[in-house]
Design a protein around this nucleic acid. Structure first.
Lengths: 227, 227
DNA sequence: ACAGCTGTTGAACGATGGTTCAGCGTACTG
DNA sequence: CAGTACGCTGAACCATCGTTCAACAGCTGT
């Protein structure tokens, strides 16, 4: 769009009110586009347009699309870590995705994470590992305080809870269609998902009697198959 | 690769022992490649190579890559429905993915489903809706028989359980890394995931006291935000 | 004022991929 | 045996995309 005739005092800040440096603008534009359309369906030119720069500048700053993607992974992982540590001071508990929904202004972190979780990325993998470790610690703490039931396999339980929570985030499109719940946005609109999820996770679905009855059956079935 | 000088009695069955018709071979090859690499990263030529035909024939039979993808969606959805109805005679219960793991010989249905769940497809969407409806029915039956706890929101509970189960399947790569569990293969190797998952889903993670205590808090928080 | 550096652009190149098409061989039909 | 239809191939076409490169503008130091 030609505002080429206007002022243009300095190369930076060519379009609207965004006075950050070009690399930062490009990185956030890439995160936004990657989150919305996926990495493969996003072209370097589309990122450049979103950032208000030329395609050449994107490659000039980041070398290649793959390196840009790696930079986005690292940046998002860092932001999520910061957000998480800030939330740990407060006391956001079990849901590892809860701490990310409050992030409103910047790039769409949860949507980017949902994409990257299925595409695969070493940086995000270690982030997930950290989430599991944090969850395990949280669960142990809740166990000590009498809030949570003890588990036969604390680490396994932490892994499963993280998988459940992030899996629902990855399937946010279906959660929207099935329940009308927006898992990516602000905590508003979470209710239709959060209430039944809490019911299931808090109290389970089995009656106490059938739990005691079915438990050894499953253990035998699984261990019997693993010979 | 010329075996053009040889026999070639009939155009079909050009390579190894696969006497199915070319469209069926192409469709299954596409399902395999789509499941392994994703739709975007799979070229028509790669599908043709996997099926042992030329790229032109793929488009000759299916019109376009997108129509081929739609045909794969429909075929996989049909196979899953058959598999599900066959399993309903037996009695495979809660886990909607369990019925698909037993499918060993044909194309990788679960892996294809995991890809398509995030890419989005109308055909698969209605399949998921059916899974939720089936799960709700199963849960109601278990409720009546005294096996399962009653729920304040039966449909919400069914949705959440399907989301958890399919979400874990979509994140099978992380389940493998975190737990060493293979969520796509045969029921062997499921143990490291299934045991803690059963523990969480069956009995919940909260102690009965804290459940009764926390429950109204969450309800107030959610409904209070939804004004 | 001159040289040099940095940020930036626009055009161009090579590769890949989806799609089209003319032609070839084989099987059925009259 | 002639003719038509069909399955199938290989080459070619065109768009898109990642990437490279020469050139340009503004700032900086001398």
């Amino acid at each position: 769009m030609g505002s080429t005739t206007s002022s243009a005092t300095t190369p930076p800040s060519p379009i609207s009110g965004d006075d950050r440096s070009s690399p930062a603008r490009i990185r956030d534009a890439a995160i936004t586009r990657f989150a919305a359309d996926g990495v493969d369906r996003t072209s370097v030119r589309a990122i450049a347009t979103e950032a208000g720069v030329s395609a050449g500048l994107v490659l000039h700053h980041f070398g290649s699309k793959e390196q840009l993607r790696a930079a986005c992974d690292e940046h998002v992982a860092g932001l999520i870590r910061d957000q998480k540590h800030a939330a740990m001071q407060a006391g956001a508990g079990l849901d590892p995705a809860a701490v990310l929904r409050s992030y409103g202004d910047g790039p769409p972190l949860l949507a980017y994470l949902a994409r990257t979780l299925v595409d695969g990325s070493p940086k995000v993998n270690t982030l997930i590992d950290e989430m599991v470790a944090d969850a395990e610690e949280y669960l142990a703490e809740g166990e000590r305080s009498g809030l949570l039931r003890p588990s036969d396999d604390p680490r396994g339980r932490a892994c499963v809870l993280v998988l459940f929570s992030l899996g629902a985030v990855v399937l946010h499109e279906h959660a929207e269609r099935l329940l009308g719940a927006d898992l990516l946005g602000a905590p508003d609109g979470l209710g239709p998902y959060m209430l039944p999820a809490f019911e299931v996770l808090a109290g389970g679905i089995l009656t106490p009697d059938s739990y005691a009855e079915l438990r050894p059956l499953l253990e035998d079935a699984v261990t019997g198959e693993e010979t």
